[in-house]
């Protein structure tokens, strides 16, 4: 099975900004190391791949509620959004690329972004609701096959 290609798989589970940041920092760094990087974007980790104008529809109040949970804010000290804004401002001052720019860089470097089919179904999302340039939606078994072939596997 050793084809000489070094691989990294990141299971992107969180959509919180302070976790999306390291997901894509590590993905772009792995690509810079020449690794084949696959990101399996599941649960809230799929949210950063939504087109900005797309709202989560869901089938019922529960799936709708998922759309407002754990999304694009920081996990601690959020203070109703003030904390998230502060972090973005500080990051900008220190010239740290925002998550959206890092996602674009990851795509430019050939990082494979794979949406989770089951999450798409749960959230009522189709391929058209997601940004361009993604891999075909996957399930856990395909993600597992990637992990099996990777020397670095992360769950963030």
């Amino acid at each position: 099975m050793d084809d000489g290609i070094e691989r990294m798989t990141i299971i992107c589970w969180s959509g919180e900004m302070d976790k999306v940041w390291p997901q894509y920092i590590l993905a772009t760094t792995g690509a810079a190391y020449g690794m084949e990087v696959t990101m399996f974007c599941t649960f809230w980790g799929l949210f950063p791949l939504k087109r900005p104008e797309v709202k989560i529809t869901g089938d019922n109040w529960m799936t709708k509620a998922m759309g407002v949970m754990n999304n694009q804010r920081i996990s601690h000290l959020n203070f109703g959004g003030v904390g998230t804004k502060m972090l973005r401002t500080i990051a900008k001052k220190h010239k740290v690329e925002p998550p959206e720019a890092l996602i674009a860089t990851a795509q430019e470097l050939g990082v494979r972004l794979a949406p989770c089919q089951m999450t798409m179904d749960l959230m009522g999302l189709t391929r058209d609701d997601l940004i361009d340039g993604l891999e075909e939606p996957l399930g856990a078994a395909a993600a597992m096959a990637n992990m099996q072939r990777s020397s670095i596997n992360l769950f963030i």
């Binding site: 920092i25 590590l26 772009t28 760094t29 690509a31 810079a32 190391y33 020449g34 220190h94 010239k95 740290v96 690329e97 860089t105 470097l109």
Partner: peptide, 14 residues
């Protein structure tokens, strides 16, 4: 210059 982690390495690779 002026780039923060991980961009210096990304640009170096490119």
């Amino acid at each position: 210059s002026g780039l923060a982690c991980p961009m210096p390495i990304v640009r170096t690779r490119q």
